[in-house]
Simulated scan of single mutants.
Amino acid sequence: MVRPTVARCLAYAAFALVLAPAADARAQLPAATGRQIALSQPAWKLFVPDDYQDRGGVADLLVHFHGDPQTVWNNAAYARLNAVVLTVNYSGLSSAYTGPFTNRRLFGSLLGESLNKLRALDDFSDNLEWDRVGVSSFSAGYGAVREILKQSGYRDQIDGVLAADSLYASTASDGTPLDSQMADYKTYATLAQQGAKTLLFSHSRVLTHTYENTAETGDELLAHLGVAASPVDRDGLGDLRFYREAQSGGFRLWGAEGADGDAHLAHLRYMGEFLRELPLAKVPEPSALMLALPGLAMAAMRRRRRIAEVR
């Protein structure tokens, strides 16, 4: 399925962000801070943002597959997600994610272990339950998501999915993406179109030659839903620039310019552009009064100083 030269280029580019946050992303996104909680596998990281607002006995969860955790946290902060973030990173291409998640129990175990870790913290309820669950992936991370979506129980549990330049497939004899590798994404896309779920899909124009790239799998989803993309010419977050968009119910697609490794990485660096559309709880925007308070406090202090000087 994978042409070695293309695969290596994408792998090296992806691991550059797995290993270290991008400096330019930090310059344009908030630097998220919070608690990192160790899990049973080093590849799994649980993160509670400092601005997380307690919701009593429930919490929202974002599970992200493949990409530097700090970059994911920063983008979640940009999207103002009031959610705990769980990142999963394995070394390798899509098969590194597909393999473990062929175990039908793994995703449930991952969510269960994360929930138990939070229940053990003083500031979370002992009876905490997940409320809304969002799943996102970048690049090779789709290998895990594809396996997870095969299970109807997990499809029911997951409220929204983001594929950030992150769905590839073998080429069928008719030149389209192999249906067996698209079927469960199509099922979820149909549920999204009907308003029961949310499916967000972004793609670049990076060519893969011997298998279907994200633009082509995006075309397949559009054809399945009977939806046509509209041409656009607008900037997104950071380096993202969009040339087409489509929306039908809870399904949304963004087509971005760029056909090199850096264009591919932009979908991770600036995934906050898409994360904000997930149906997860949001941290409330500061009110006009709260924004004005620092200035009012400074003015009051200056006034007191002037009064003291007169006296």
Rank of each mutant, 00 (worst) to 15 (best):
T176V: 08
L291R: 12
M182V: 05
S91A: 13
L17D: 12
L86R: 01
D262G: 11
D219R: 14
L118T: 04
H64A: 12
Y154M: 07
T102L: 10
S139Q: 09
A172I: 11
D131I: 01
A13I: 06
A266S: 14
D126A: 15
D239T: 14
A223S: 13
R155Y: 14
L240N: 08
C9P: 01
F138S: 11
R8Y: 03
P69R: 01
Q181P: 00
T208Q: 05
S180G: 08
S287G: 13
F274N: 15
S170G: 10
V6P: 01
L291A: 12
Q193E: 06
E113Y: 01
T190Q: 05
P100Q: 06
Q70K: 07
S173Q: 14
Y168C: 02
P279L: 06
L17W: 06
Y211F: 15
Y78A: 15
L167C: 05
L268M: 13
K45F: 04
P69W: 11
L162D: 00
G195K: 06
L118G: 03
A38W: 04
I307C: 00
T214N: 06
R306V: 01
K282A: 05
S166F: 03
A31R: 13
F15D: 13
D179F: 14
N82F: 10
V232R: 02
Q70N: 02
T217S: 14
F47E: 02
E245H: 11
W73F: 15
A76G: 07
M271R: 04
E285F: 13
M290T: 09
R205I: 12
L221V: 11
G249F: 09
G295F: 08
A172D: 12
Y211C: 06
G218M: 13
S152W: 06
R269H: 12
D68C: 15
A31M: 08
L10K: 05
W44G: 02
A43K: 03
D54I: 02
V58H: 06
T190V: 08
